[in-house]
């Protein structure tokens, strides 16, 4: 565990806490894409089936359990507990446009044609684009609550920090995984536009709104 990965994981945990806090404190999931959250639940479920087959560390197992549990808890909050506040009319991105290509790509580009490995590969590809329904929702409404923008900033930073971790591991441990790296770079690139607006608006105390 190097400093970049630690900060990346911390950022990921922070994102999840901010998300749950936003829903709980405002008693509302307005502005959140349930479809992105469904995608994240699928990502964690398919990636962490290895909880049953391989043990890395207590930290690793606990983190996996927390990610899986929190993703389903978030779905419960959006689709059941605070369903009345869910912005379903604007959350219209078709998830199958992400699921199908990611599944096909995982079947074609993978390290080994084996169930657990294919599920891991699929989850890596899906995670890289899972935020698209959320960004699509914001582009439709043209705005995001400040706390939602903090959530997105944390979530976007996490994979960006993982890229630094991969660079570090390449040089120090001669370890690299091209599938994780290319998907991670794409994932981070998708946030760039958001990062720009976050830094130029939210940090300066303004509301997050798309330029007219």
């Amino acid at each position: 565990m190097n400093i970049f990965r630690f900060l990346g994981d911390a950022s990921h945990f922070a994102a999840i806490i901010i998300l749950v806090l936003k829903i709980w404190k405002t008693r509302s999931c307005a502005g959140l894409s349930g479809r992105s959250q469904i995608a994240f639940a699928i990502v964690f479920t398919t990636r962490y089936v290895d909880l049953l087959t391989s043990y890395v560390s207590l930290y690793n197992s606990l983190a996996k359990i927390i990610f899986i549990f929190s993703s389903y808890a978030t779905l419960y909050l959006i689709y059941f507990r605070f369903k009345a506040t869910y912005d379903g009319n604007h959350d219209t991105f078709r998830l199958e446009f992400l699921l199908v290509p990611c599944a096909l790509l995982a079947l074609i580009v993978n390290h080994r044609f084996q169930v657990v490995e294919l599920l891991w590969t699929f989850s890596i590809y899906l995670e890289s684009v899972a935020i698209l329904p959320q960004l699509f929702l914001i582009s439709k409404t043209g705005e995001a609550e400040t706390i939602t923008s903090h959530y997105l900033f944390s979530l976007g930073s996490y994979r960006g920090l993982y890229i630094l971790n991969w660079i570090y591991r390449y040089y120090v441990q001669n370890y690299y995984d091209l599938i994780a790296i290319s998907a991670g770079v794409l994932q981070t690139l998708l946030y760039c536009d958001f990062f720009y607006l976050y830094i130029t608006r939210v940090i300066k105390g303004k509301a997050f709104a798309l330029p007219a």
Binding site: D50, V56, A63, K64, V109, R112, W120, Y175, L178, A180
Partner: peptide, 10 residues
């Protein structure tokens, strides 16, 4: 593709 390594990342 190269052999998969142990997946120690999240």
């Amino acid at each position: 593709c190269k052999e998969p390594q142990i997946k120690d990342e999240l």
